[in-house]
Write a protein that binds this DNA or RNA. Structure first.
Length: 225
DNA sequence: GCGACAG
DNA sequence: ATCTTGTCGC
């Protein structure tokens, strides 16, 4: 399909813009979470962006969008499916803020991707803001299991190169997979993920965005009946 | 060719 | 991603 070929070409071009080993902000005061929910039996989608503030990570701003999926799920091209609704929601949430969030957290991978350009990279390059990917499952590369305690981590390597980390965010829970999206580095990314996980396995940003997108989709389904 | 494959 | 709350077990 032409759509797929075009996406692959664009992906290769945008990939050169990624900054994956630069110092990011030291202190994170605000962080944004992004997620998209999908309907089981239609192409209805709901995207959500939430902005949380330290120290309690309470939601200080949010936006949602309901639309139709324009790109099917293809491993390695997830960003082309999720970015449109996420950017639309972003444009709504940004005016609510005095300043852009210090960090953008994506549901999925950054450079830990077959061609080094996952969703977190695509979002980061598009908005030119610091982004990281926090995925619930592994996608590419190899890693040994991290120790059982919160904060322990091991490297994810792809073709011998470090591309991310398997990070334990709570004692005894399954690890999450962290990788840089844009304008930061892996050490900072892991540090921020731990800050964003004071109580659960997943970052508060991810949890809030996930809840909001799902609730929005459920309401949209009800309204269309 | 076969199997795997973020969300 | 999605079907889904309380409940069994460490």
């Amino acid at each position: 399909m032409r759509q797929v070929e075009d996406a692959e070409v664009l992906q290769a071009e945008l990939r050169r813009l990624v900054q994956a080993d630069v110092p990011g902000p030291d202190l994170i005061t605000t962080a944004a979470g992004f997620d998209v929910a999908y309907d089981t039996d239609s192409d209805l989608v709901a995207g959500a962006v939430v902005v949380l503030a330290a120290p309690g990570w309470e939601v200080i701003a949010s936006a949602t969008v309901v639309g139709r999926a324009a790109f099917s799920y293809i491993p390695g091209l997830l960003s082309f499916r999720e970015l449109p609704p996420l950017l639309e929601a972003w444009e709504t949430v940004l005016p609510q803020l005095a300043a852009p969030p210090d960090l953008l957290v994506c549901d999925g991978h950054g450079i830990a991707h077959p061609r080094g350009f996952g969703l977190a990279c695509h979002l980061g390059v598009t908005l030119d803001l610091p982004t990281i990917g926090v995925a619930k499952t592994q996608f590419v590369g190899e890693h040994s299991p991290p120790g059982p305690r919160r904060g322990e981590r091991t490297a994810i390597t792809l073709d011998g190169e470090p591309v991310g980390a398997a990070l334990r965010t709570r004692d005894g829970v399954r690890e999450v997979y962290v990788s840089v999206g844009h304008r930061t580095n892996l050490d900072s990314a892991c540090r921020w993920v731990l800050e964003l996980c004071p109580r659960y396995r997943l970052p508060e940003t991810t949890r809030a965005a996930d809840q909001l997108s799902r609730r929005t989709l459920a309401e949209a389904r009800t309204a269309s009946r």
